[in-house]
């Protein structure tokens, strides 16, 4: 091939690469980058979210209000709760998803594809449907959980789980795990399917037990999947508000930071993060809270990622 032709081909290749990336870049810019930057700017204004309503630049007033005006005890409780939510979801969801993936990857299992579809189904149901299922299951005094506690476990006055200050939060965590476990499972399955069968055969010849084969062969080779799932679970649970909003509306000690941002921005029939009065439609203030939440998510993600990398290096 002549030099000029080679150059033309290289240029053409670059154009193709750029054009292929363009739709993704455009979507990212329009739906992610611009809204994020705009949110940052709006956090310094008193915009309400009402079309046509006047708004002005208020500097750091929203941040000051978040850190000074609201009840600090409630804020600390909300932060603690958000941490518990993120840690519980990340640990339990990934453990269950890994277990399910290992079982569903077994070639001896019948109806493998059907079982995978069943585990994955909650992912596609969406928050509203999951919340409805959860509310029906735990409803008092006719829901199956209430009846089970009363008639099988013999509890005379079973607690109303979703209205209990001690049980509602674990129930919401359960809903989040149930909804997202299928997604993590699929990522683990992809990792498991990439492991060559020969490695297990070699381990078997070396006399490795099932547990040793999992720990020495499987686990290191799905580390990347574990990293991805861990980060996705942490980020997802730190930002989560849909399930909390639809199941308890933030009452009964279930409000997290993400829920608080949503309640401030959009209100919603008395929904509030702590049960305290938030009237909603204060999108400038909500944007400031959103930016602080973003900072928290960013810091936690960076720390988690570096810890995962360090562990990966140590393993290898």
């Amino acid at each position: 091939m002549k030099g000029a032709d080679a150059n033309r081909l290289r240029l053409f290749s670059h154009k193709i690469v750029f054009l292929s990336m363009l739709p993704g870049l455009l979507l990212y810019t329009v739906f992610r980058l611009i809204p994020s930057v705009t949110t940052g700017v709006l956090s310094f204004t008193d915009i309400s979210g009402i079309p046509g309503a006047a708004w002005k630049w208020v500097g750091l007033a929203n941040y000051k209000e978040f850190l000074v005006l609201q009840n600090i005890r409630d804020l600390i409780n909300t932060i603690k709760r958000t941490g518990i939510y993120a840690i519980s979801v990340t640990l339990i969801q990934n453990s269950l998803a890994l277990l399910a993936a290992v079982v569903l990857n077994s070639k001896f299992l019948k109806a493998r594809n059907f079982s995978r579809a069943v585990y994955f189904m909650p992912v596609i149901l969406g928050a509203a449907v999951v919340a409805t299922i959860w509310k029906l299951m735990f409803s008092t005094p006719t829901g199956p959980v209430f009846l089970f506690m009363q008639q099988v476990m013999g509890i005379e006055n079973p607690p109303a789980v979703l209205s209990s200050y001690s049980l509602a939060f674990p129930a919401v965590i359960g809903a989040q795990i149930w909804q997202n476990m299928g997604y993590s499972m699929v990522i683990f399955l992809a990792g498991l399917q990439g492991i060559p069968e020969e490695l297990y055969e070699s381990a078997d010849l070396d006399g490795a037990s099932v547990w040793q084969a999992f720990w020495r062969v499987t686990f290191p080779l799905i580390w990347h999947a574990l990293t991805v799932n861990t980060l996705l679970a942490i980020i997802g649970s730190l930002q989560s508000f849909e399930l909390i909003m639809t199941i308890t509306r933030g009452s009964f000690n279930t409000a997290t930071l993400g829920m608080r941002v949503f309640a401030t921005a959009f209100g919603g029939g008395g929904a509030s993060a702590t049960g305290a009065a938030i009237s909603g439609l204060r999108q400038g203030y909500a944007a400031a809270q959103g930016m602080l939440l973003f900072a928290v998510v960013l810091i936690v993600t960076i720390i988690s990622q570096s810890l995962m990398k360090k562990a990966e290096v140590e393993q290898s």
């Binding site: 209000e65 005006l69 609201q70 009840n71 005890r73 409630d74 607690p159 109303a160 209205s163 209990s164 200050y165 009452s251 509030s272 702590t274 049960g275 305290a276 009065a277 009237s279």
Partner: peptide
């Protein structure tokens, strides 16, 4: 009125009765 920035014990216009122990609150 509900007071701006009030904590959860003073929520619901000052009377957050759902927190009472007779209703399962703390």
């Amino acid at each position: 009125y509900g007071l701006k920035g009030v904590g959860e014990y003073g929520a619901n216009n000052g009377f957050n009765f759902l927190l009472l122990d007779v209703l399962g609150g703390p």
